[in-house]
C-alpha cells in the first residue's frame, strides 16, 4: 500500500527527514510516535503533497506509484487522505458545499458520475448517522467557530465521505479532552477496513488505548529508530523518548 524508501525531506533548506523507511500493508494500522520536532508533521505533509516540503532523496510509493511531484488534489483522487492536526477554518463556505465539491472532484478525476444533490444528501445522512454527528455541523461553515472536538470529528466525517485507501491522521488526539478523544477514536475504529490503511501520528500513548495499532514506530531525528508491536507504545509511556534523544545526540 505505502512504501517509503530512504526518504530525505528538507524544509527551507533544512533537512528534517534523514533517510526514513516505512512499509504499510493493506488494511494495516500503523502508529508513528515521536517527540516534538522529530519530523512527524513533516512526514504527514510530504505524503499529502504540501508545497515547501522538498524531497531531496528517496521516494514515497503509494499503490505502486511514485508520489513525488504529484499535486495534492491528485493524491486525494488516488485515495490519500490527511486528517489535519489543526483543521483550517473557512468562513462562508458551508461544510456540505465543501464536501460535495471535494467528493465530486474526486469522482470526476476517477471517471465516475458526480452525485446530484439528492444522492449527496442521502449519502451524507447515512454517514452522519453512522458516526453520530449532528446535521447541524453540515450546515455550518467549514470548521468556523468549531470546538477542538468538533474540528476533529469533522475530519473523521470527511474521511468517511471521501473513503480513502490510506488515511494519515496527524496528531488527531491533540487538544482533545478524554471524552472528545473517545468519540474521535470510535469514529476512526468504525472506518477501519481490510482495504483501508491508516497511519496514526501521535506524541502520546493515550490515543493507542482507544485505537489499537498493528505496528508502532518510533520517529526521532528524522528516522525510524525502532519498530515493534503495540507493546512498544507501553514502553514509551514508561520510559519516554529520552533514550532516542540521547542515542542520536
Amino acid at each position: 500500500m505505502l512504501e517509503i524508501k530512504n526518504l530525505h525531506v528538507s524544509v527551507d533548506g533544512k533537512e528534517i527527514l534523514k533517510g526514513l523507511n516505512l512499509s504499510v500493508g493493506a488494511g494495516e494500522m500503523h502508529a508513528i510516535m515521536g517527540p516534538n520536532g522529530s519530523g512527524k508533521s513533516t512526514l504527514s505533509y510530504v505524503i499529502a503533497g504540501r508545497e515547501g516540503y522538498d524531497i531531496t532523496g528517496g521516494r514515497i510509493v503509494f499503490q505502486g506509484e511514485d508520489l513525488t511531484g504529484m499535486e495534492p488534489e491528485v493524491r486525494a483522487a488516488k485515495g490519500l487522505f490527511l486528517a489535519f492536526q489543526y483543521p483550517v477554518e473557512i468562513p462562508g463556505v458551508p461544510n456540505t458545499t465543501f464536501l460535495k465539491e471535494a467528493l465530486n472532484a474526486i469522482r470526476r478525476y476517477r471517471g465516475e458520475d458526480e452525485l446530484d444533490a439528492m444522492q449527496f444528501v442521502k449519502m451524507m445522512r447515512e454517514k452522519t448517522k453512522e458516526l453520530g454527528i449532528s446535521d447541524d455541523m453540515l450546515k455550518r461553515a467549514v470548521n468556523a467557530g468549531f470546538s477542538g472536538g468538533e474540528k476533529k470529528r469533522n475530519e473523521i466525517l470527511q474521511m468517511a465521505v471521501l473513503k480513502p485507501t490510506l488515511a494519515v491522521l496527524d496528531e488527531t488526539d491533540s487538544g482533545l479532552d478524554i471524552d472528545a478523544l473517545k468519540i474521535v477514536a470510535e469514529g476512526v475504529n468504525k472506518l477501519r477496513s481490510p482495504d483501508r490503511s491508516m497511519l496514526l501520528i501521535t506524541h502520546y500513548q493515550r490515543l493507542l488505548d482507544y485505537i489499537v495499532p498493528d505496528k508502532v514506530h518510533v520517529l526521532a531525528h528524522g528516522k525510524i529508530q525502532r519498530s515493534g508491536g503495540k507493546e512498544l507504545a507501553m514502553e514509551l509511556e514508561e520510559k519516554g523518548y529520552a533514550e532516542f534523544g540521547e542515542a542520536a545526540a
Binding site: E71, E73, A77, I90, F98, E101, A102, A105
Partner: peptide
Amino acid sequence: FYLRSRGIP
C-alpha cells in the same frame, strides 16, 4: 492546501 488535500483542484 487543506482544500486541495480533499481533492478540490
